[in-house]
Amino acid sequence: MSNNKESLINLLTQKPWEPAQAKVDNLHEGKTFNLHVGKLGLRYIMVVSTIMFCLFIVTYADRMVYDDWIRMPEPFLLWINSLILVISSLFFIRIQLASKKNNFEKVRRELVLIGVLAIIFLIGQLLVWQNMIEAGYYVSGSPANGYFYVFTTLHGLHLLGGLIYWVMTIKKVWKLDDSIVIRKAKHTVELCAIYWHFLLAVWIVLFGLMLFS
């Protein structure tokens, strides 16, 4: 009987020394949320990086109002790259469904595709950089350029980190010996998918910010 539905106020006003409370408490499972630790861990990481990006956005907003702010062009390639991210997220939804149905053949096939798409995206971003530099938009040119490079780098690094986890996921779904392993692998696929969707969301926010400011 975990007390998941208990409100925070109720929780914090418990008097643990009272015998009546003790009887309830003795039955407590020791978990706060009915969630797998992996999922919680992923949420933790997503919260930290969300805070980081939010702080960048706050400074961006602060910096934008100064008059040396020069808008950046939006290279067409960025739209294509964004599209690639959207497509990988769509594929990941398919993977999630397949994994639920234990269709691991499909999971494997499409996971590989995800990796390929991610690498294409990263190369695409590098190409964008190259175009920008050739067009004379250096990091130090205007703060808008600075932010563009910072945002793309950090997002790219997040994706690289994701690729490490993706390798672990691939390893797991390729070796499915018994039911425990299968359960773990499904779990890993799920986490990997959530992270990919998260990165898409981050990208949309950052891209939107750079487009509309």
Partner: peptide, 17 residues
């Protein structure tokens, strides 16, 4: 630290204990 405290407590260990 956070997840161990939140999720890996032993039986009977409520937050307020």
């Amino acid at each position: 630290y956070v997840i161990t405290i939140l999720q890996a407590r032993t039986r009977g260990m409520t937050l307020m204990r």
